[in-house]
Design a protein around this nucleic acid. Structure first.
Lengths: 188, 188
DNA sequence: GTCTATAGTGGGATAGAC
DNA sequence: GTCTATCCCACTATAGAC
């Protein structure tokens, strides 16, 4: 993945990420990217074959970072789902435009490093216990962050209660008991 | 809303919707739209001030239709939440690109008919009983449909179980309200 | 590795004739 | 209400010199 890029290409991808986050997806053009780097747009093509490759690199980096932070947040957590949600929200808050890029279109899976998507999802499956519950929980989490990102919850006051409601709904029984301060032993 | 548009403008918006759904957002250009109607692009500006107005009209129509179908589906339903989810999924399946247009960016609320957004959301609030539960359920539903739309659930086999898991989670007040009002590090 | 020059495409929008 | 002609913009990408 990113390791297959030259050092100069890595610099370009880093600049692209800055540009993306600071000015949005529409501003991510080869001209503007060249500007940021103090070179002309055509020079970029000596380091990256085309713009699609640049976007793939951004997406791949995003998944790798997400997977790492999710793993780190949940590995030793007493409440893995809550910890994951915190890490997830933090990632989106740090990288809102990148998150959009990662999720708004079908993934170019064949051009991404193998397993990068699966690794990012693994922490969630671990946290909720089963793939179908993970899918449902993922939908809730993704829905919450994109709706917030898109200003679909005008009154931010209602946000935290909604997160609590969803967390409680998707926590497995043992987790609910843990949150209540009960023993897990009796959980089915 | 749409009623403030001339009949010809209404025809244009209808053609735009066809174009949007059949070829995607990138194909929705004034030139291509003119093609569909058998006229030149500049002629469109006699009926609509600019492209943004066209998109606003599309979004407004989408919300009106959604509100109507959601109302119709839930008004006499024994299981309002399940009925709403069915209607919601059907709307997205019929209008995937329009749904994207309606949800992927911050809403130009000041340019939409008043209450149109609220009306579309009202059925869900009725179905789940409280605004915060509605928000959480909305996030789940929206997350599910966009992730499906974006091919994020590669194996479609897992889709229906995920819907069932989510529905069950949000239909069970006990699980949702378990932590209601309680501050959690995982949520707050 | 960067440059200039440029091709090629496509977009939104306006002016003014008919 | 539609046309032609046109402007101005921006983009990706290539060729070839340095």
């Amino acid at each position: 993945m990113g390791e297959s890029l030259s050092p100069r290409a890595r610099q370009i991808v880093a600049a692209a990420r800055d540009l993306l986050e600071s000015e949005g997806a529409d501003a991510l053009t080869m001209r503007r990217l060249g500007e940021r780097l103090g070179i002309r747009a055509p020079s970029l093509y000596k380091h990256l074959p085309n713009k699609a490759a640049l976007e793939v690199a951004l997406i791949a980096d995003g998944f790798e970072e997400a997977a790492e932070t999710f793993d780190a947040a949940t590995s030793a957590a007493k409440e893995p789902l809550a910890a994951l949600v915190n890490a997830y929200r933090a990632f989106v808050k740090r990288n809102p435009q990148l998150y959009r890029l990662m999720t708004e279109r079908p993934l170019p899976r064949e051009r991404l490093p193998a397993e990068v998507e699966h690794r990012a999802a693994a922490a969630l499956v671990r946290a909720v216990g089963s793939p179908e519950r993970a899918r449902a929980a993922f939908a809730f989490i993704h829905g919450m962050v994109v709706l917030e990102l898109n200003g679909r919850f005008p009154d931010d006051d209602g946000l935290e209660p909604a997160w609590r409601a969803g967390l409680a709904a998707f926590a497995n029984p043992a987790s609910i008991d843990a949150l209540r301060g009960r023993s897990r032993d009796g959980a089915a």
